[in-house]
Amino acid sequence: MKKYILKRLFQLIPLLIGMTFISFIIIQLSPGDYFTQLKMNPEISSETIEKMRKIFGLDKPIIVQYFYWLKNIFTFNLGESFSYHVPVSYLIKIRLKNTVSLSIFSLFLTWIIAIPLGIYGGVKEGRWIEKFLSFIAYIGISIPSFFLAMLIIFFISKTAILPLGGTTSIFYEGASYLEKFIDYLKHLLVPGIVLTLTGIGSLYRLMKNNFLEALNSPYVFTTYAKGIPTYKIYFKHALRNAINPMITIFGYELSGILSGAGLVEIITGWPGMGRLILEGVLSQDLYLVMASLLIGGILLILGNLFSDVLLALTDPRVRLK
């Protein structure tokens, strides 16, 4: 098992290098550099800028610059934000917490709802209830997350049952830890529900199909023939085989959740990475954009690694290969 994880980690190295390189190329493509904006500031003399340019290695060839940048990244020096005048790593640290909690929250909800529904749909295949669920799943897959977010915001603006925007209420200061936690959860609920509702559909369909396939396989017929009780067939035999492909899906799901979260965060006013990268784009804050892109990619890699390890744990065939 240790060997397998090490092997996977080793395989990630070229991927990470490629990702940093592409991020870097994108910065290079854009007009101007780190100092173009500083130049506009009359308080900073051109000599100072030249000096700083040397320190950051911007007068060297592009490949050398890349290694400068890479060295900085490994020391968590992601550059400075032009618009906020603080290190980018500081901004990301705050926002990353919110994005990760939103993603995990909705991922958890999605799975806890979609998997049982998928099993139920597989059992009831062909009945009206399954057809109804599949139709709802179609709507869930097709509705744009931003549109669903706006519909939910519209609904809340009429009923005011949940707080909108931000992570905390006004009374946040001075509240007890439990109250703080509940308040945070309440704010998390709107973006969380949107992401969950848009995620359930595809997961439900996959689970249903996997479960159906398992139910129609010869070993399940054997168990029927042996007279094993139905619930045992479902949960002990069919489910175990149907759930393995889902774990591989987990990595992809994470990609969808992260991308979806970016947009939903912006619409619902949840201060996460998505909002940060948009602010970066709007103020042409390139280092902020690049760092967010890189961190987003790293989150995805970690998610994939996690699902690989999980798969190896549940399926001995994978780790023995």
């Binding site: 970016g262 990268i277 970066g280 784009v281």
Partner: peptide
């Protein structure tokens, strides 16, 4: 490998980053 690298970026982030160029 190139394809994998492209697929490893969350698409929404990549879209915004490319727009920023």
């Amino acid at each position: 490998r190139l394809v994998e690298i492209f697929m490893m970026f969350p698409s929404f982030y990549l879209m915004l980053a490319l727009r920023a160029v």
